[in-house]
Simulated scan of single mutants.
Amino acid sequence: MILLARQPSDSQKILEAMLQRLPQTHKEYAYVRERLGRVKAGLAGEQRVDAEWLELDLPTPHYFLHDFQTMNDFGSTHQMDTIFLCPHFLLILEIKNITGILSYDASYAQLTRTTIEGTVEGMVDPFLQLERHVAWMKKLLQRERFHLPIVHAVVLATRNGILTKGFEGQPIFHVTGLRSCIQRWTEMYQPVKAETLLPFATRLLSMHTRLKKEMTVPFKEMMKGVVCPHCGNGQRLQYHYRKWTCPRCGLVDHNALNRTLEDYRLLVGPQLTNRSFREFFAIESPNLAYKLLQQLPLKAEGEKKYRKYWIID
């Protein structure tokens, strides 16, 4: 059972919104586009591993939490690509969609890859990331007085990532190795009572929180208004006769308000006023802004000029 489904992350949505609102001549445009490409590739890798699970004969009951995010007691964040729970064990996966020749030096905690062009790139040590997540999970299990063995691994989502000898002894394998690892761990650990698993999985789910992402470009440098999703480069839609229309491509966007409200949530935050709404949506008339605000899924607080609105998730 999937308790927490995988979805495009807020990081991806923020980058997409930024790319729509940055002029192509902006100094950060190329970086944002490249970063978005990496995030999308990461999601594609995670979805490749998700598809592999569908072909496996898994212990029952079992529960998945994908893209689990939470904060520890010290205010630091934890983001786990997949948590899999079954009566035999709890598995934490770090999924990598990396191509090239991969090398690892445990003494320096250093992961590098050599691209097909011969460029050597340094990368974050995924094993240290996993060990940190495991330590947090162990403390949670102790606090909840629930015993379940924890296993962890890095999964390569593409066969074009070539592992070298430096990875010997490390918990890493290609996605096709998931089947044999699940079987081995299932045989290795005695199961707990099946009915005790769901309460802990539900407890984990209750701790999931969407972590705030920081933007790399100041919002003031982005284009305002309701932008055309087809034309890009900040092309604004025009509002006439209760319709948002693109003067360039002729698109009539019936979802323009809600789509732009989501941009506001990602780039500004969950709170609006009539003034901030007009500034972001590039609307001059306070009366028109008020009418449009009534069409949106918002919670209003206060009266008249002191009124504030909150975006409802």
Rank of each mutant, 00 (worst) to 15 (best):
L91C: 12
Q129K: 02
K96L: 04
G100C: 10
F89Q: 03
G100E: 03
E121P: 15
M123W: 06
V120A: 14
W136D: 03
L93D: 11
L102V: 04
L91H: 14
S103W: 00
L102N: 02
G118F: 01
P126G: 04
I101S: 14
N97F: 01
L148K: 14
Q110I: 04
H133K: 00
E131G: 13
T119L: 13
R113M: 00
I95R: 08
Q129A: 08
T114K: 15
V134P: 00
F89D: 07
T112W: 13
L111W: 01
E117M: 02
L140C: 10
F127C: 07
R145G: 07
I92T: 13
E121M: 12
L91G: 01
I98W: 06
F127P: 10
S103Q: 09
L128S: 13
P87L: 09
R145T: 02
W136Q: 05
V134Q: 05
R143I: 13
T119A: 10
H152I: 08
V120S: 13
G122N: 06
T114G: 13
E121C: 01
A109Q: 14
E117Y: 07
E117T: 15
Y108F: 15
Y108D: 14
D125H: 05
I98K: 00
V151Y: 15
F127T: 01
F127H: 13
Q129H: 08
V124Y: 06
Y108H: 01
F146K: 06
E144R: 09
G122P: 02
R113D: 03
R145N: 15
V120P: 10
Q110W: 04
L90S: 12
E131Y: 06
G122I: 03
E121N: 13
G118Y: 04
H88F: 04
L140G: 04
K139L: 12
L111R: 03
M137E: 03
